[in-house]
């Protein structure tokens, strides 16, 4: 009986012991897993690269407001026209300088580009920028005017001299610089690292 009682008691104690054992094993396994994980994480740290310190006073760019975003979205459509026309204009000049077209053909090549700029200018002047972007908008409109003037200048030349092309390119480069500045402010992800 005693034995039976003892056995019965042992039998009753067994699930408790089993639980403790399982817990011990679980803790051990968890500790092992954690240790292994930490070890792997340490291994996964990128190899040390000689890194220079970031510049002092690096300022993050503030996000555009909703009104500014709306304006940026609207101007993008104009920007797309202007940018393509601008690159076409550079290539019209390049085609002449590379001997693909004669000077007499240059005016005809540029004529539709002038129309592109006129159309873009009309679209841009219809936009109402928020007060915070009025200056930027004025600069952008000025850039389109520069481009239009440059295209007219390219078409105007007579004779052998390329002076009018140089005058035109000076204007278009100024416009391109403004485009980059405005684009940089409104769509800084426009150009990805290449």
């Amino acid at each position: 009986m005693h034995a039976l009682t003892q056995n019965t008691t042992s039998a009753r104690r067994l699930p408790g012991l089993r639980n403790i054992g399982v817990a011990v094993v679980a803790v051990a396994l968890t500790a092992t897993a954690l240790y292994a994980g930490l070890r792997e994480m340490r291994k996964a740290v990128p190899p040390a690269v000689v890194a220079a310190p970031m510049e002092m006073g690096h300022a993050e760019r503030p996000a555009l407001s909703a009104d500014e975003e709306r304006y940026a979205h609207a101007l993008w459509k104009v920007h797309d026209q202007v940018r393509t026309a601008a690159v076409r204009m550079s290539f019209a000049g390049l085609s002449y300088k590379m001997g693909d077209i004669k000077k007499s053909e240059l005016a005809a090549r540029v004529e539709p580009i002038t129309q592109n700029f006129k159309s873009a200018l009309a679209d841009a002047t219809k936009l109402a920028p928020p007060a915070s972007l009025e200056q930027l908008h004025a600069e952008y409109v000025g850039a389109i005017r520069d481009y239009e003037q440059a295209s007219l200048e390219m078409r105007a030349g007579k004779g052998e001299s390329d002076d009018h092309l140089i005058t035109a390119q000076t204007k278009s480069e100024r416009a391109a610089t403004t485009l980059l500045k405005v684009g940089d402010a409104l769509w800084p992800g426009e150009h990805k690292p290449n």
Binding site: K97, E173, H191
Partner: peptide, 23 residues
């Protein structure tokens, strides 16, 4: 961004400056 278009990565300013040098 450029979405890997075939000639992506050429801004009007870069192209204009290349043209300016050639001119």
């Amino acid at each position: 961004g450029c979405s890997r278009t075939p000639a992506c990565g050429y801004t009007p300013k870069t192209m204009d400056q290349i043209y300016g040098k050639i001119l």
